[in-house]
Simulated scan of single mutants.
Amino acid sequence: MSTTRPYPPPGEPGPEAEGAASPVTPPPGQVRRLRLVGVSGAVPRSRDFAREALRDWGWLPAATADHRAAAEDVLLVVSELVTNACLHADGPEELRVSCAGKVLRLEVVDLGAGQPAPRTPHRAGRPGGHGMFIVQRLCLDWGVVRNGDRPGKTVWAELAAPA
């Protein structure tokens, strides 16, 4: 888990990434939310939801290979976070997507008690166990916020907007 800096509360975007530029900045404070309680096909539905937000915010259609790669990274991280909630946390409750300045923030809320972490040591040739390693490699930062006195947590990840 990341310990590189304090993280904002769930639902609030973190600080901007250095050296990145956003193609389109959504209205300030905009957070897109997708309820996932009891939904079948949560992973593809979450990817479609994130893809639509990226279209609305000008990330898609991608103007360059770098923009395309940034959008694909976002969709991959969404897949990994929602899949982990499905496999290890009794399913996701909600996906939140927000973009503030130069940073896109993803949050997956679940009721699980576990603590996501990259598998150590990472073994590239073995099946399974790559989700949080991928998140760690693609994101500026990521972490976990517990839901206080309620069960569950919010797993968040931040990615740089394409340059």
Rank of each mutant, 00 (worst) to 15 (best):
R126M: 02
P151R: 04
V31K: 08
C139I: 11
S79K: 03
L87D: 07
E18I: 09
V37H: 15
A50R: 07
G58F: 04
G29H: 08
C139S: 04
W142I: 08
V155T: 09
V108L: 02
R5Y: 01
A50K: 06
H88F: 00
H130F: 14
R105L: 09
R33V: 10
L75D: 08
R5F: 12
E12I: 13
L138W: 12
D90T: 02
A21N: 07
L34I: 10
G19M: 08
R35K: 04
D141H: 08
G128I: 01
C86K: 05
L95Q: 05
A65K: 13
A42G: 13
A89M: 07
V103R: 00
H88K: 02
S22C: 10
L111S: 07
H122Y: 11
P127C: 06
S2D: 15
H67P: 00
A63D: 15
T154I: 11
T4A: 14
L76K: 11
E158C: 09
L106Y: 03
L75A: 06
G19W: 10
S79I: 07
V135L: 11
R35G: 04
L54N: 07
V109K: 10
G131C: 02
E18Y: 08
L34T: 13
G112S: 04
L104V: 05
G131H: 11
W59R: 00
S46F: 08
R137V: 13
R150K: 12
L75W: 05
A163I: 14
D56C: 14
H88V: 02
F49L: 03
W142V: 11
P13G: 02
E72M: 08
L87M: 14
P27M: 08
P15A: 06
L106M: 15
V78A: 08
R126T: 05
R105Y: 15
D48I: 10
W57S: 02
D48Y: 07
H67S: 07
P27N: 11
K153A: 03
V155H: 10
L138G: 02
P118C: 12
W142D: 06
R146A: 09
T3A: 14
G125L: 04
H67V: 08
T83L: 02
D110A: 07
L34Q: 04
P10E: 01
T25P: 00
D141L: 13
L54E: 02
L54C: 04
L54D: 00
E94L: 04
V103F: 00
T4M: 13
R55I: 03
P13F: 06
P61D: 09
Y7H: 06
L76N: 07
D149R: 00
W142N: 06
A89G: 01
H122V: 06
S46Y: 05
P15I: 05
D48N: 12
E16P: 06
G58P: 00
V74W: 04
R33K: 07
R35Q: 05
G14Q: 05
A20G: 12
A161N: 01
Q30W: 15
T120I: 09
V144S: 11
Y7K: 04
P28G: 09
R105F: 13
L140T: 14
E93P: 01
A85S: 00
V97E: 13
N84D: 07
M1W: 14
L54H: 03
V43T: 05
G129V: 02
A70K: 00
W142R: 06
L95P: 11
